[in-house]
Design a protein around this nucleic acid. Sequence first.
DNA 1: CTAAAAGTTTAGACAAATCTAAAAAATATT
DNA 2: AATATTTTTTAGATTTGTCTAAACTTTTAG
Lengths: 217, 217
Amino acid sequence: MQSFTEENYLKIIYHLSSDTDVAVQTNAIAEKMGTKAASVTDMIKKLADKQLIIYQKYQGVKLTDTGRRTAINIVRKHRLWEVFLVEKLSFKWDEVHDIAEELEHINSSELIERLDEFLAFPKNDPHGDPIPDKDGKFDSATFIKLNKLKTNEQGLVMGVSEHSSAFLKHLEKLGLTLGKLVKVTDITDFDGSIELLVESKKINISREVAKHILIKA
Amino acid sequence: MQSFTEENYLKIIYHLSSDTDVAVQTNAIAEKMGTKAASVTDMIKKLADKQLIIYQKYQGVKLTDTGRRTAINIVRKHRLWEVFLVEKLSFKWDEVHDIAEELEHINSSELIERLDEFLAFPKNDPHGDPIPDKDGKFDSATFIKLNKLKTNEQGLVMGVSEHSSAFLKHLEKLGLTLGKLVKVTDITDFDGSIELLVESKKINISREVAKHILIKA
DNA sequence: CTAAAAGTTTAGACAAATCTAAAAAATATT
DNA sequence: AATATTTTTTAGATTTGTCTAAACTTTTAG
Ligand SMILES: [Mn+2]
Ligand SMILES: [Mn+2]
Ligand SMILES: [Mn+2]
Ligand SMILES: [Mn+2]
């Protein structure tokens, strides 16, 4: 069994490496954890001793299979709890992350399997992220970023790659929520900002916002 | 904010003093916490510094109003989560305590108020214990222990004062669950064991078991 | 009322997770 | 290739929660 802290390190290493599977640097972990590089070095030694990561001095770390399985299980719990909070307790999608950060460390596989069942085995969390099944498997459907669409192209909002409350509230206000059909009607020359049609409403978003909206064509 | 450990100390002090409101002894706390008396002394100094308890050397501790409020809130969370686990996730009443011990430390009043609403504001947990409302108020209905009933007296099972899985499973098997009407049909001279009628079924329980069953006449 | 027993506190130590400051290694720049 | 910069590691402290062993206080029993 791992401490909450060890679990958070594993999860961060997972998120920093899941796209690329390249070694994760000490400083990158420190930044995400909100600690100093020296603390990270201490912890990665400990995780390496426990065979959860592979560590070579000055070369960063990679998850072992066990480490990755552990990390994915934490992600599974996080996302299932987020679904619970939104679907059953009527939280908004911008309110659930911090609570899920705590709930993800509750240690009971029986609990999580029953929660999964209670929620009718959801495939995605409130932000569109896939929920791994109990064996750690999930479809890694790759979506396009909205800023890649050209004028007159359209697609469905499938997820977001930024989870801050400020960003999510902004989307909510614009009506840019999961499942919505969006069509690019114009792209401004000056700053690249994008004019969209969402449910016959015309809205404008910045390029920066568009980058974090995931679209299925 | 308190650490999990501090919260557990407060809760234990509360449970050890809630009946009598007499000072709680160091050793009693140590036993419940599964630590040594020396550790308890360290911790009660800290809790006293934080004004959560009143401590006089060698004289045990009492909760302050703040300390009691904090403790009751943890009990509220524990019992609401137990209701959730039984009512929504179909756990048995003997399976929920350990998971609730973890969940009770999740720190979000918004979460707990919404959970309370989701559960339709239950008054009692799966073991019959009262659930404090958000202001810490609850009816402390006092029930009779089943071993106090005489032959031919009867009453409703309202709760249990022992929460071990072994005990609860035993009751389950005997059909002695919350809300059942029981009637004492005989008391054995030899060992004081009690013969009961539960839903027209005759069962036998030891005096020790009877002591932990709470009855409304 | 005194002595033994029980209960509590102090002293000193340790493991976990963190920090700062300094040293060392890797990488980038001239 | 030599130097400057960035990144990482080490060394030494600190805080939290725990422990054992010894000292001290309170309670119980003779
Ligand atoms: Mn989240
Ligand atoms: Mn999410
Ligand atoms: Mn319980
Ligand atoms: Mn209970």
